[in-house]
């Protein structure tokens, strides 16, 4: 009895909360809920509301109201529509290129490489994450300028690199987001039991058949997880297009140039990547891979 009293006396908060389950729960989720609802969802909601507002043609000031013109302009202005489609294709291309690089690399790292090579590669993949995002973009810009490193290094064998254009945008975005694809794919391949490879070869499957029939089906959830990052991060980016795209426009470019001049159009446009990602997640869900993530 006396022990209990001492405990309650020395830890009054625990004792108090012990009897009140609801308060305990509140204490646990209050902060994250404030963050999600109060900061995250509220700001998104305010943004969505702005998309229905007007801009005063005389003073360029935003006036509350209700119009669907901003959304309609996404489809009726040819430059807007083509930019949306271009951005979607760029994001898909970045995802495809990332998968193409990540799977062979993951197989090599997980199953073939010696431990020290594996560690060195893991560091090499994650190293770019330590550098600033803008620094990496400017670095790509400098490497691929007309008189930059790439053209200088490959000039002797008669190769010239891509100029500031869509291919360079895809390359730069892949460079930025590749770790988000490579790491989950590598982890997934490591988790495949070695005896599955043995079983596959016992039944006469060659290397590529094993990869295609055994490895790929098992790592689809990891690829989907990685692609959510590569796809959605590419959709929202605009600095890559600005610095390495030449005159290439992406959805982000339109948002950036309208954020001061015409906030309602910028707000309406910010819904486009959200719509793309939702559709993407729904398709991914259909394949059943989200449950296994």
């Amino acid at each position: 009895m006396s022990t209990q009293t001492t405990n309650a006396g020395s830890r009054p908060i625990s004792a108090y909360l012990y009897k009140r389950a609801k308060l305990r729960l509140f204490g646990l989720i209050a902060l994250p809920m404030f963050w999600i609802v109060g900061v995250y969802i509220l700001s998104l909601f305010l943004l969505l509301i702005t998309a229905f507002w007007f801009v005063d043609p005389f003073t360029s000031k935003v006036i509350p109201g209700f119009t669907l013109d901003n959304f309609i302009s996404i489809f009726t202005v040819p430059a807007y529509l083509s930019t949306s489609i271009r951005t979607l294709l760029i994001a898909l291309a970045v995802t495809a290129v990332s998968v193409l690089f990540a799977v062979p690399l993951g197989i090599y790292m997980a199953k073939i490489a010696r431990p020290w090579v594996r560690n060195a590669l893991a560091v090499a993949i994650t190293l770019p994450l330590w550098a600033g995002y803008l620094v990496k973009i400017i670095a790509m810009r400098l490497v691929f300028t007309e008189e930059g490193f790439f053209n200088w290094a490959l000039a002797p064998i008669g190769i010239s690199g891509p100029t500031f254009s869509i291919p360079l945008v895809i390359l730069t975005l892949t460079y930025l987001w590749f770790p988000y694809m490579a790491l989950p794919v590598y982890t997934a391949i490591r988790q495949i039991p070695p005896n599955l490879f043995d079983a596959s070869s016992d039944m006469g499957a060659k290397g590529f058949t094993t990869i295609y029939r055994v490895v790929l089906p098992l790592i689809v959830p990891a690829i989907i997880a990685g692609s959510v990052f590569t796809f959605s991060l590419s959709l929202g980016d605009y600095l890559v297009a600005k610095f390495t795209g030449g005159s290439t426009q992406m959805i982000g470019s339109i948002i950036a140039s309208n954020i001061n001049l015409n906030p309602p159009v910028a707000a309406a446009f910010s819904m486009v990547p959200i719509a793309f990602v939702l559709i993407y997640l729904m398709v991914a869900r259909r394949t059943g891979s989200l449950e296994r993530m």
Binding site: F58, S60, P78, S82, N262
Partner: peptide, 15 residues
């Protein structure tokens, strides 16, 4: 034409 019209027109230039 006002600046708002210039802004809207500008957005249509870069396809």
């Amino acid at each position: 034409t006002s600046f708002q019209e210039w802004t809207n027109a500008w957005a249509t230039i870069k396809g």
